[in-house]
Structures are given as structure tokens and as C-alpha cells.
Design a protein around this nucleic acid. Structure first.
Lengths: 210, 210
DNA sequence: AATATTTTTAATCATTTGATTAAATAAGTT
DNA sequence: AACTTATTTAATCAAATGATTAAAAATATT
């Protein structure tokens, strides 16, 4: 009936198990990971995983929410920065995400699979449902730009374009790298180029005749 | 030691099992599907699945290759059509894929997960390793356009952009639809808009000052 | 040092799960 | 009809898997 033990005391082992879980869950997904895989990866006994985290699912939920936080980290600050223009925000966002994805290239697939498996858990888990989109600075700025340009296309197109151009190449990377015979370093160099290119492309898209 | 029984005679049951497998594998992925799920979905006994397909993995391989063929169906003809310009090819490709993805929105995630789990199986499975990219009409046309425009960016960027803009919105659809409160019909209408928009955007990207 | 508490392990359980077997039913052939 | 082959099922197996337990080892407290 006891709750999980003090976290502070033994950050090392608990953190090692979480690190192992992060590696295995991220690589193989929830269903394909065996609790034993995590035990082996961590170097600890199988029972330790349950001693610290009660169950595979609870451990997974923790990893999932941490990944989600990595994914969403600091973007609210960017979206709500009153001191940058819309275009600057795009530059910062794209740059931020490409840097992050080079460090964590498996994140998008993990998160999309998590959404797919249980949309509500993930969406309410992070409190994304509490955000009032109307209040965000970037939305207001977008409306100004859209009005000035008399844009006839749905704003969600632009958002999808930004996200697609930034994230998808990382999801497709195994296939892309196989077909193009690019090394990881060469691939990452291309992704870094995209930090400058995507904002330019978005601008071009916004100005394109429709 | 016997091979699988005659297919012709009982297309109905075998095809029903495959159809059930398609549904369950596509929705839940390989690891999360139980052979019993497929049995239940098909309405037949568990042993039938093994009677017809020997094992869960063999059945999965069949479904995977069929999905891959759906995904790649007829694109070689498009890529090699000497009677269309590069820009026309882009229009045809994007249109083709968006139509296909509206019918099979779960395909991209399934295929990307399959590549992730075992890249070689899938890539050699379809014979993609035998294609000589240099020989494709679209590649020659691309080189002409790139030379004329004196493009300094790596051609794979353009390819990634096309694929990203077309496919990613379908993978992100559960999240996009949740956040935007769009119905499936509204979402699909947006995707149909993209059949015209993406080629225009690609053109704008090609002409963008870098 | 003696005692209590926390951490770790080995052994084991109970289910789940992929697969098989043997028998029953249906269909085809003579 | 008698016989053979193909299809389908119920029952069962063996291995895998998530989880628990009881005890050992390590650490902290008195």
C-alpha cells in the first residue's frame, strides 16, 4: 500500500532506469518493449523497474510526458513574445525545433504514435487543451499579416506547412538516408541549412499567387 | 511441411482474414496486434490465421508489402513519363498522393513504423534498391531546371519539401483535428485544396531568393 | 554495534500470446 | 454412396511477459 519511495535519495538508480526506459521506449515503442529490455538496458534487475515505477505503463506515461515537454519546451514563450515580429517568430521556432530534432530525431515518431494510440491521454496530459489560441500574440500577428495580404487560404495551411517542412524530414530520415546514401552528418548538415531556408520558403509561400 | 493451400478456391475466407489483418495491423501496429484480434475481427477461429498464413509475422509481411505497393503504385510511370514537364509531374504526383491518402490516411504512419522497425526488409522487399535514380526522366528534367535556375540548394530539399507538404498533414491529423476542431470532412476538404496549392508553393520555393 | 529502513535480487506466479494438434465438418471426386 | 481432400473449430501447449514476493544486501539511524 506504500507509495513510491523518496525520489531525492536515489536519483541515480531511478534516473538510470528512466534513461534506459527512454532509450528502449523511444526506439521500439510501447507495445514492442519488454520490461526485461528496460531492465537489461539499465543494468538492474527486472523487479527494480516495478519497485520504482509500479508498472510498465506508469513508466511509459512518465517518459511520454517528458518527451512531450521536450517537444513543447519554451515554445509558449516564443509564441507569446511581444518583442518579435511574426516572421522573426517563424525563424526562431524553426531554428529551435531543428536544433532539438537533431538531438532527438526519434521524438516526432514517438509522439505521433503516442497520439495515435491514445489521443486524450497525451493532449490533456500536457494541458494543451487549456490554451486559448485566440490570446496568443502570434495569432494576433498572423491575423494582421493575413488581413494586409488579403490571404484567401486557411491559416492552418501555413501552420501545417511550417510543421511539415520542419519535422517530416526527421521522420523520413531512415528512408531518405538509405535512398540518398547520405551519412548522418551530411543529413544533419542539410537540416541545419533548413533553419535558414524554411523561413524563406514560408515567406515565398505567403507571397505566392494563388 | 506443406505449403499454404490453394488460394483460388477460397478467396473469400483468406481474403477476409487479410482484410481483418489489414485493419488491425494498420490501426495498432505489429507489436500491439494480437493474433486473436485478427481472428475476432475476421470472425474466424484463431487457428485459421495460422492455417492460412503460418504465422503472425508472415501475415504482417504480406500486409506490409501490399501497403507499400498501394503507396508506390504507378508512381514509376509518373516519374518516367516523357510527355509531361517536371512541373506537370509535381502536379500529378501531389494529386495522386492526396487522393490516395484521403482513402488511406493511416498508411504513412504504418510505413514509417515499418521502415523504422526493419529498414532492409521493406526497402529490398519492394525492389526500391534496384532503381537507378539517374535514369529517371524526372531526374533529368530536374537537372535541366536546376541548371537553368542556377539553384544552389541540394535537390533533396525540394524532394523533402514535396513529400513533407503532402504526407505530414495526414500523420499529424489526429492532433491537428483535435486542436482545430475540424471534422474529418473539413480536414479532407483542406487536403483537397492542397492538391492545387502545393504545386504552386513548390514553384514559389523554387523561385525564392536564397 | 545494534537496529531499522531502503535498495536490490532471485525465484516464482498468473496471464497472455503465438502456435500446434486432433477431431469435426464441408466440399469435391470416384 | 464411399472415399478423399480441404476447411474450420475446440482444446491445449510452451514460451513470453508483466508483476509479485520473500529474502539478501546495502545504507541510514539510534
Amino acid at each position: 500500500m506504500s507509495e513510491k519511495p523518496d525520489i531525492e535519495k536515489n536519483e541515480s538508480t531511478e534516473e538510470k532506469i528512466k534513461e534506459a526506459a527512454r532509450i528502449v521506449f523511444t526506439r521500439k515503442g510501447y507495445a514492442a518493449t519488454r520490461t526485461r529490455d528496460i531492465a537489461e538496458e539499465s543494468g538492474y534487475n527486472l523487479a527494480l523497474i516495478n519497485y520504482y515505477f509500479r508498472s510498465k505503463e506508469k513508466l511509459y506515461d512518465i517518459i511520454m510526458l517528458e518527451h512531450l515537454q521536450t517537444f513543447l519546451h519554451s515554445i509558449m514563450d516564443i509564441l507569446n513574445d511581444a518583442d518579435t515580429t511574426l516572421y522573426q517568430k517563424i525563424e526562431v521556432l524553426v531554428g529551435h525545433y531543428i536544433d532539438m530534432l537533431i538531438k532527438n530525431p526519434a521524438l516526432p515518431l514517438f509522439i505521433i504514435n503516442a497520439v495515435n494510440a491514445d489521443p486524450d491521454k497525451l493532449i490533456t496530459g500536457i494541458g494543451a487543451d487549456k490554451i486559448h489560441q485566440e490570446d496568443l500574440v502570434i495569432i494576433k500577428q498572423w491575423k494582421e499579416v493575413a488581413a494586409a495580404k488579403k490571404l484567401a487560404i486557411h491559416p492552418v495551411h501555413i501552420l501545417m506547412n511550417m510543421v511539415s517542412l520542419t519535422i517530416f524530414p526527421f521522420m523520413g530520415s531512415p528512408l531518405i538516408r538509405n535512398r540518398t546514401k547520405l551519412s548522418i552528418e551530411e543529413f544533419n548538415a542539410l537540416m541545419l541549412e533548413r533553419k535558414k531556408l524554411i523561413p524563406i520558403w514560408i515567406k515565398a509561400i505567403l507571397n505566392a499567387e494563388v
